[in-house]
Design a protein around this nucleic acid. Structure first.
Length: 429
RNA sequence: GGAGGGAUGGCAGAGCGGCUGAAUGCACUGGUCUUGAAAACCAGCAAGGAUUAAUCUCCUUCCAGGGUUCAAAUCCCUGUCCCUCCA
């Protein structure tokens, strides 16, 4: 959510900034609502003040043993008047909130203009796509040789799920363990285990709700009277991990906060029908190792560079060629002010594919989360900045390892850093 | 499955219709003292919002949502979460 003060005082420049990402809104509607809000709020507060002072004087009169009847009469209609003023104010406020909640974050100045992913700007490149003196297979063909099984998954659950057995399952687990160890032991993150089902408050905090409910899996916890409580399958570890800090005032000396967690992610992939139907690229259920940082405002863009480098470290250790792109305004996620995507080279597709998305949200999430620290100098709570990134998406990393480290006979070389996690194995055949 | 107890400021924890936005302790900030530190003492210290150039002032908030009342942290109902005991 953007600052309500900014929306009041500087709506023109907000509109201008958001137009960069092709988002527009009715300025007049908002300013009209805002003017009404102001009038109503002042009026409501005056009435409340009146009621409070009257009630106090009744209390005093009663304590002094005076007759309070005339005082009571003076207050007769106050309640109704106050009630209607309040509900009118509430109605206006709700409308303003709805608009504010539907507005995306303002892109950072370093974010390039653009309409879609084709306009993203390559920042750097690491490694060279391998040269293969045989016809490369894609991960689906390779996977089927070693225990990746989509047909069985379809029987159990449906399309866009996977089953892995044997060495393939082990490799998947090895990748997860390696990533968790690297981030917690070398990069200074605290490991976190978190719920995979989350409530709507959490999803609102990180920005998935109210706008993107269609992308989520929804569950119902049935109460005794048939009253259902809604929980959602987490669409990314970002949600539970960031929400650990919702509604807190963090101790300044504990900053920055850095957490790493391994979670499954569940996406309904509504609107993605027909896209990436083959293989592990776009699944309803997949694993991620997620990095989350909470930092002071002035540190957030430096932290974005460092967090991104932590994700890059995994790719480098696994000897996977990749490039880093700066997402353009048209491809930027709703809550993000700036995002780097890491795209890994996939020889089977002869292209780079996203494997990690590292974003700085500035105070957009923190405002919804009420995530703050007390600034010693001003002695006031200030919003913190949040960041997160996948470090990495495990399923896609598995794809990249299979395709990049394949050999002519379809066997897979295991990168050195993974071998200890594979019981010493250096090749899957 | 049954029976109770609880949720209050950064933390712990009083308060149980009006003088309570909230005692007390800890933490934190400033000061006195000290060569310096510690201790001791003194002072300050919840959040959000309206208004304002700023101060002032005002409003809201004691888990959440309803209700009773002129007046609710306090009474009633519903929900959520935590804890204890019995089977």
């Amino acid at each position: 959510m953007l600052s309500i003060k900014q929306l009041r005082n500087d709506i023109e420049s907000v509109a201008k900034a958001l137009s960069r990402r092709n988002f527009s809104f009715d300025i007049k509607e908002l300013t009209d609502l805002e003017n009404r809000r102001k009038r109503n709020q002042v009026k409501t507060q005056e009435l409340q003040n009146l009621r409070n002072t009257q009630s106090k004087s009744i209390g005093k009169a009663k304590a002094a043993g005076e007759d309070i009847k005339p005082l009571l009469e003076a207050v007769t209609n106050l309640g109704d008047e106050l009630e209607s003023a309040k509900s009118e104010l509430q109605e206006i406020q709700t409308k303003i909130d709805d608009i504010a909640l539907s507005m995306p974050n303002i892109p950072h100045e370093s974010v390039p203009n653009g309409d879609c992913e084709d306009d993203n700007v390559e920042v750097s490149k690491w490694g060279e796509p391998g040269i293969y003196d045989f016809e490369v297979k894609d991960h689906v063909d390779l996977g089927e040789m070693h225990g990746l099984d989509f047909e069985t998954a379809a029987k159990i659950a449906g399309a866009r799920f996977s089953v892995m057995t044997g060495k393939m399952a082990r490799l998947h687990r090895a990748l997860t363990q390696f990533m968790l160890d690297q981030h917690s032991e070398k990069n200074g993150y605290i490991e976190a285990y978190v719920p995979y089902l989350v409530n709507s408050e959490s999803l609102t905090g990180t920005g998935q709700l109210p706008k993107f409910e269609a992308d989520l899996f929804k569950t119902h916890l049935h109460g005794e009277e048939g009253e259902a409580k809604t929980l959602y399958l987490t669409p990314t570890g970002e949600v539970p991990i960031t929400n650990m800090m919702r509604d807190t005032i963090v101790n300044e000396k504990d900053l920055p906060l850095k957490f790493v967690g391994h979670t499954p992610s569940f996406r309904s992939e509504a609107g993605a029908y027909g896209r990436d139907t083959r293989g592990l690229i776009r699944q309803h259920q997949f694993e991620k190792v997620e990095l989350v940082q909470v930092v002071k405002a002035q540190d957030s863009y430096a932290a974005l560079e460092v967090l991104t480098s932590h994700a890059e470290g995994i790719l480098q250790a696994l000897e996977l060629p990749y490039r880093k792109v700066n997402l353009c305004t048209g491809d930027l996620g709703f809550s993000a002010a700036k995002t780097y995507d890491l795209e890994v080279w996939l020889p089977g597709q002869d292209t780079y594919r996203e494997i990690s998305s590292c974003s700085c949200f500035e105070d957009f999430q923190a405002r919804r989360l009420q995530l703050r620290y007390k600034n010693k100098e001003t002695n006031k709570p200030e919003l913190l900045h949040t960041l997160n990134g996948s470090g990495l998406a495990v399923g896609r990393t598995l794809v990249a390892v299979l395709e990049n480290h394949q050999q002519a006979d379809g066997s897979i070389k295991i990168p050195a850093v993974l071998q200890s996690y594979m019981g010493g194995l250096d090749v899957i055949n």
